[in-house]
Simulated assay, not measured.
Amino acid sequence: MPTDIFVLSNYHSYKGGQNPNFDKSSSMLLDFKQGKYLAIEFWKALVVDKIRAITGEPFYIATVPSSTAGKSHPGFQALIPKLAQRLPIINKDYNLIKRKSTIDKLATGGNRSLSTHMSSLKVPHISVEKAPVILLDDVTTSGNSLKAAITLLSHARYNVIAAVILGKTVD
């Protein structure tokens, strides 16, 4: 497990517009998933501040990938280059973690088990120097995709120094 896991906000699901707890950060998370500009800007400031508080040293960045094999996450695809303008990210042009097989979307009832994530994710490149990594995830519910990502990065000899999650599902 990483040294620290930081959750930047609570996520209240939309529930077809029927959730009275659905708030601005929850809305910004949904917009982030679609790669919308205002949401990218909203999360950029929060993520930069958190990572600067964690480390000032160069680091690799990894994101928990989309449920679809080979698909890039629109929000992270737009956010990472913006973070790289302000932070010493070593691998600003690629993600350390890949989805090797598609899984059912978690938001619509897909299997959230640790074994599902362990068998569908891969880290294609092994680190030779125990390189430091900051792991990013948009929303965590069970935490199993995060655990799988951390485990796989560790097995590939990366040192996950922290995980930063934009939102944790609370209802």
Rank of each mutant, 00 (worst) to 15 (best):
I61K: 00
H12L: 09
P88Y: 09
N111G: 01
D93W: 07
A78R: 11
Y14M: 06
S145C: 08
P74V: 10
N159G: 02
Q77R: 05
S26Q: 11
I5T: 10
E41L: 12
G70L: 12
S113E: 15
R86G: 02
R86V: 10
D31I: 07
V47Q: 00
Q85E: 13
F59T: 05
A53I: 03
I134L: 03
G17T: 06
K130D: 14
L146T: 03
Y158S: 02
Y37R: 00
P74T: 02
L136S: 05
I103Y: 05
V123W: 09
N19R: 02
G70V: 11
R52K: 12
S9A: 15
R112F: 14
F76A: 01
L83M: 06
D93C: 04
R52M: 12
R99S: 06
L114E: 10
F32H: 02
R112Y: 09
I54Q: 05
K168R: 13
I90F: 06
I54Y: 07
M28R: 05
G109H: 13
Q34H: 12
N21Y: 15
V47T: 09
S119P: 00
H155C: 04
Y37Q: 09
M118N: 02
K24D: 15
S127I: 07
A78D: 09
A156F: 15
T55M: 04
K92A: 14
Y158W: 10
L79T: 05
G167P: 09
R157F: 14
A131Y: 10
G17N: 07
R157C: 08
I89D: 01
Q34W: 13
L166C: 06
K71A: 15
P81N: 01
D4P: 03
F22N: 02
Q34K: 13
S13F: 15
G56S: 11
S101P: 07
G17V: 11
L38M: 06
I126C: 02
N21S: 10
L87S: 01
K98P: 00
G75I: 14
Y60F: 15
